[in-house]
Computed example of a mutant assay.
Amino acid sequence: MVRVLGGRARAATVTALLVAALAGCGSESPAGGGQAGAPLGDAKSSSEVDVATSEMAAAKKASKVEECVAGSASDGGLPSIELPCLGGGESVDLASFEGPMVINLFQGFCAPCKEEMPALQSFHETYGDEVPVIGIDVMDTVPGVALEEAISRGVTFPMYADPGGELQGGPLTARAVPTTYVLSSSGEVKLLQMGGMTSEDQVKELVEQKLGITL
């Protein structure tokens, strides 16, 4: 199951369309934990969305979420877009990352995103030294919910934020959430899965198929 975000066009147009399409789908109640406020609404620029409030920073510090650390590449294949670290930390230029890598695009109010987090975390714990996992909270006006949901499900891999939809129109376009991509060692970006994954084995099998490796 996926939460549809919309089609692909120019970055600004896509972002506006996606947010509008999502407005009717983002009414999930934050009951059971979550930052108060509308999860989705009017499109906002990245500067208008605080992805590292004091509350978020405190929650991240008390968790086992890993710090955001830039890679060593000058152009590893991902777009040269600097994204802030979800919950505070070092902003990172995605182009500094090298494959193999798993990149998961998610939102805090997306049910299938939350359901697949344990599978991604389990893969990260088992194979993260060979194929690291990162998360990107995309086009989310309430990133505190995304961080809280991830922490509550035991996520420890680094997470970034793209509240302004900077990735839209590029190789990491979010046509739906969750969407997961892989970055190969040669710098090629491939779609891994649209929709939630249910187990570590499923993630492993898909990664092996897409990257042509054996874990």
Rank of each mutant, 00 (worst) to 15 (best):
G32Q: 11
N104A: 12
M56C: 03
E148T: 13
A16W: 07
P79N: 14
D93L: 09
L40R: 12
S91D: 06
E200C: 09
E125K: 10
T15N: 09
K204R: 15
M159P: 02
N104S: 11
A38R: 09
T15P: 00
E166Q: 10
I151M: 00
D93T: 06
D93H: 10
G108P: 03
C110Q: 05
A23E: 10
G128V: 00
C85T: 10
L22Q: 13
S54D: 12
V49L: 12
G187L: 08
A70T: 02
L172S: 01
G169I: 05
L78W: 06
D75F: 12
L167E: 10
V155F: 04
M197I: 07
V145E: 11
G144C: 01
A52D: 15
Q168Y: 09
A20H: 12
A31P: 01
Q202E: 12
T180F: 11
G196H: 08
S74M: 13
R10Y: 00
G26D: 01
I136Q: 05
R153N: 13
A111T: 01
G76Y: 04
G187N: 14
M1H: 14
K204Y: 10
Q35G: 05
D75A: 13
A52R: 13
P79E: 08
S152G: 07
V65W: 07
A174P: 00
E125H: 11
E125T: 06
K61N: 10
S199D: 02
G71S: 02
S74R: 15
A58E: 13
G128R: 06
E55M: 13
P118L: 13
S63H: 11
E148H: 01
M194K: 09
A43R: 15
S63T: 03
G154C: 08
S47M: 01
Q35M: 08
M56Q: 02
R175E: 15
A38P: 08
E115N: 15
A150W: 01
I213E: 07
P132C: 13
P84M: 06
I134D: 00
S47I: 06
L215D: 01
S47E: 10
E48D: 14
P178L: 15
E188F: 11
D162R: 00
I81P: 09
G195K: 02
A161D: 04
T15C: 11
A12T: 07
F106E: 02
Q193S: 14
Q202S: 07
V102R: 02
L172A: 00
Q121C: 04
E200R: 13
V177N: 09
G154Q: 03
A70D: 10
V69A: 14
M159G: 13
A119N: 03
T141R: 09
S74T: 15
G89S: 06
S63D: 04
Y160V: 02
E67P: 03
A38F: 11
A38V: 03
D162G: 06
S45V: 13
S184N: 00
V133R: 05
S186P: 12
F106H: 08
L172T: 00
V2E: 07
T141S: 15
L78G: 11
G37D: 00
A31Y: 10
A161R: 01
E28C: 04
N104F: 04
L83I: 03
T13Q: 13
E82H: 07
P118A: 11
G99C: 08
V133G: 08
E66I: 07
P178I: 07
F109T: 09
